[in-house]
Design a protein around this nucleic acid. Sequence first.
DNA 1: TCAAAATATCTCGAATTCAAATTAATTATA
DNA 2: TATAATTAATTTGAATTCGAGATATTTTGA
Lengths: 149, 149
Amino acid sequence: MGNDSIQQSLKLFIVLSRAHRSMNDVVNKYIAKQGLNPTEFAVLELLYHKGEQPLQQIGGKILLASGSITYVVDKLEQKEFLERIACKNDRRVTFAKITEKGKTFIESIFPDHEKKIDDIMNVLTSEEKEMATELIKKIGYNALDQEQK
Amino acid sequence: MGNDSIQQSLKLFIVLSRAHRSMNDVVNKYIAKQGLNPTEFAVLELLYHKGEQPLQQIGGKILLASGSITYVVDKLEQKEFLERIACKNDRRVTFAKITEKGKTFIESIFPDHEKKIDDIMNVLTSEEKEMATELIKKIGYNALDQEQK
DNA sequence: TCAAAATATCTCGAATTCAAATTAATTATA
DNA sequence: TATAATTAATTTGAATTCGAGATATTTTGA
């Protein structure tokens, strides 16, 4: 009945939470082994794939508070994986740009990173992955809607 | 091909991550409105449903480092939602036990909390929820296995 | 055109989380 | 027993993350 439906929902909530945690633990463990924390990796990946970005936009894309960006970018700059570049037109803005050293680094770890994720997901058939993606997407969009309210 | 399969896996990974985030944002926002942080809520819920627990076991069940437990339990004790009780047999151990005030509090917010989750999940039919649960469970277990390696 | 208000961006300090060190108890063995 | 080694539990301090404030720019309207 209506009550069963709630129980189903709660169970799905818990299962999704646990899966996400386990999944992330695997990925983060590998990233940590490379000497990065998950946020640093996310920023570096973004700069590698999308090119140089204003700090502000980095925050928007990986959903990070602006204060955290300063800190993460500091770290990556110390490691010489990126450089800060002042914007000429707008003195409020600073760009972050991946360095050659950073590029080389990420290219050395990315294949294994993808393999880890594929190893996790390949417990499902191609059709199952398709279906899971669709169902979870619905949940995600609906949650976003609920958030507005 | 093999390459498509990887793309499928990566996509599923991202979709699951985003859904988890949106879902949690909804739930956490409600919890924050009640003056708790997510960890505090998790601890209180555990004590409410499972009875008094040694601090150590709280950490095990909600996957929290022992140092974090001390902090969270301090907070909840200040709010008078739980009390520390020394163990008689083993002087190393401290129990956390929910107080009447804590019980009353959680009973006042739990129905709405469950409703939020149900609202999110009910974008799926009962059959879809069943299927999503099974698929995600597989992913979660497999990730746990990968973690061992 | 200039001043005030609104907007955008970044950094600093507070809050949260975690890892390492500390303390206590148990077990093994001399 | 008594001592040392192992195991268990907690707290302290460091690392990370976030929210509020400081600074720079743009826009509005007098």
